[in-house]
Amino acid sequence: MIVAKRKPFDEIRQLLKGYKKVLNVGCGTCVAVCLAGGEKEVSVLNAELDMAGKLDNTPIEIAGITIERQCDREYLEALDSKVGNYEALLSMACGAGIQFLAERYPQIPVLPAVDTTFIGVNQAVGWYEERCRSCSSCVLGHTGGICPVTMCAKGLYNGPCGGTNKGSCEIDTNQPCAWYMIYERLKGQGRLDCILEISPPNDWQNQIPRTVIQPGYSKPEAAAK
């Protein structure tokens, strides 16, 4: 899932400065699971904003709504009849959701309340770790299911570098060396031949905005407009 964390409160207040009537839009998918921007987080943030506004005499009328997915037109539609009543929208969705919201209502300022952080896993409640940088050419098949792009501090395709230190990465003894893990796992599987081959320079595909159209589908004419 996509993991985000709430922006510092002061930064959110700074972004909202001057707006008196705001709708805070949460998202019920990834950011809800990682406890950053679901229904509960929307109401907590709204209560804090309300309180802070009252305390320093800059009252703000802030409402909240959480839709199933902000990155999906189908669910955004539910906001069409509401947004006109507000001077600005605050969004607690990931960066994609925030942009989709802004795209749908181009006349209204849309402000981010979270910092979108990574694609990661749920290690335990409240504890998430990054696992993928969405490089568009997945190499997990020959790296033992461990991503060198994300997990190696240098994103090396032919590791480990000379800094590996008793299994940890040179940047931090608490950070396992990705390539050490890759080696250990492949060794355990008897598949070290996977990394004997030189991995050629990567064909970076994440340097321009990417589009995916699945086989059998096409860009609907209506959406293009």
Partner: peptide, 28 residues
């Protein structure tokens, strides 16, 4: 060389490039 991670230096905020790695640099 791959190079020491930028975290060790005087600009730890820098974006590390690592477009290619040392193995690939040799080949290039």
């Amino acid at each position: 060389l791959s190079g020491d991670h930028q975290k060790f230096g005087d600009h730890p905020q820098a974006k590390g490039v690592f477009d290619i790695d040392s193995m690939q640099l040799i080949g290039m």
